[in-house]
Structures are given as structure tokens and as C-alpha cells.
């Protein structure tokens, strides 16, 4: 019997994530914004809370649609030169979750630890996109519905619990699978 599934090098060679940082305070925290309507308000609220928690951190923002190889190259270049860790915001539809996974991968490929943020119910989409990118990228779900731009709802969702989760994503040591050393 022949296999109908096309070969993919992503399935064969798992690329490792970058080692996580020990702590976020004092680092340059980057926000990649994919221009979805929710990206900017989520970034604004997150930056405000992160600034309170990490008074010595600085913040950098970058925006370009992650639609092609050139834009992914730009994202990686920005992350490598301007940031120590990076958040990619936000996957809240099919195409943009794919784009956020690709952007998160571009940042990791540039040597910077990253976490992708997606809306409720888009975690599985991020995971499968990440797997197909060939890297077990980390992500966190922001408890907002798809395309939420209401600032009050975002303030309610982007809280200390989410900050803890983001901090863990950027500081918790890698698993064997994330290092690309796990045996399937």
C-alpha cells in the first residue's frame, strides 16, 4: 500500500528551541505584532503589566505581516538584534495563528527564546502549525474570544495568571522533545 501523505523534512528533523532565560527582569522583551486588531491592545496591556513586574526590563515592538519568507527574515533579524526574549501576538484566526507560529519559529531560528500568544481554542492550531514548522514551539492561550478588541475584556484576560504562564514559557527549562532529542 502506498502512503498518500507527502514527505516533509519537518517531520524528519526536529529543530531545538533555544535555551530559556533565568529571569525576565533587566532583559529586552520584544513584542512581535501581526497587525490583527487585537494585537495592539493585548500588547499594550501586557507591556503595562510586565513593566510593573519587571521594572528593569525594556520593551521593543515590531510589526510586519508574516506572509512570506522576506517578512520572516525581517522578524528574525529584528528579534536577534533588538530583543533577548520575544512574544508573538496574536493568533485568533486560522491564517493569523499560522502566521504567529511561523513568526515564533523565525524568532527561535534567530536564536531568541519566544512564545506565541493565541486566543481561546487556537492552541491546537498553533501546535500543529508549530509541529509542521519542525519545532515544538511554546505558546500560551490568552482567555479571550477570537478577534476581541474590547479593552475591558482584554484587561480582564491579561492578568497575573497569564503573566505567570508567559514567564514560565520563557524561563522553564526545555524538555527533551523541545531540545529535539526525544525519541518518537
Amino acid at each position: 500500500m502506498r502512503d498518500p501523505v507527502a514527505e516533509s523534512t519537518a517531520d524528519e528533523t526536529l529543530q531545538p528551541l533555544n535555551d530559556r532565560v533565568e529571569a525576565l527582569d533587566g532583559l529586552r522583551i520584544g513584542f512581535y505584532n501581526n497587525a490583527k486588531p487585537a494585537a495592539e491592545p493585548v500588547t499594550d496591556v501586557l507591556q503595562s503589566l510586565l513593566a510593573e513586574r519587571y521594572p528593569n526590563a525594556t520593551f521593543e515592538r515590531f510589526h510586519v505581516p508574516a506572509r512570506d519568507e522576506e517578512s520572516l527574515r525581517q522578524i528574525g533579524e529584528w528579534a536577534a538584534s533588538e530583543t533577548d526574549v520575544c512574544l508573538a501576538i496574536i493568533g485568533d484566526c486560522g491564517g493569523c495563528t499560522r502566521a504567529i507560529a511561523r513568526a515564533t519559529n523565525a524568532v527561535e531560528a534567530a536564536g531568541v527564546p519566544a512564545v506565541g500568544l493565541v486566543a481561546d481554542e487556537f492552541g491546537l492550531s498553533f501546535e500543529t502549525n508549530a509541529r509542521n514548522e519542525g519545532r515544538r514551539l511554546r505558546h500560551r492561550e490568552v482567555p479571550i474570544r477570537s478577534e476581541t478588541t474590547d479593552l475591558d475584556l482584554i484587561r480582564e484576560a491579561v492578568d497575573e495568571t497569564l503573566l505567570d504562564a508567559i514567564e514560565t514559557a520563557l524561563t522553564e527549562p526545555l524538555t527533551d522533545e523541545e531540545r529535539g532529542t526525544a525519541e518518537d
Binding site: 501523505v5 507527502a6 514527505e7 523534512t9 499560522r98 514548522e133
Partner: peptide, 8 residues
């Protein structure tokens, strides 16, 4: 696709 599936 993201996985760059090789369509032969």
C-alpha cells in the same frame, strides 16, 4: 503548507 510537504 508549513510542513513544506513535497508534492510529487
Amino acid at each position: 503548507g508549513n510542513r513544506q510537504g513535497r508534492l510529487t
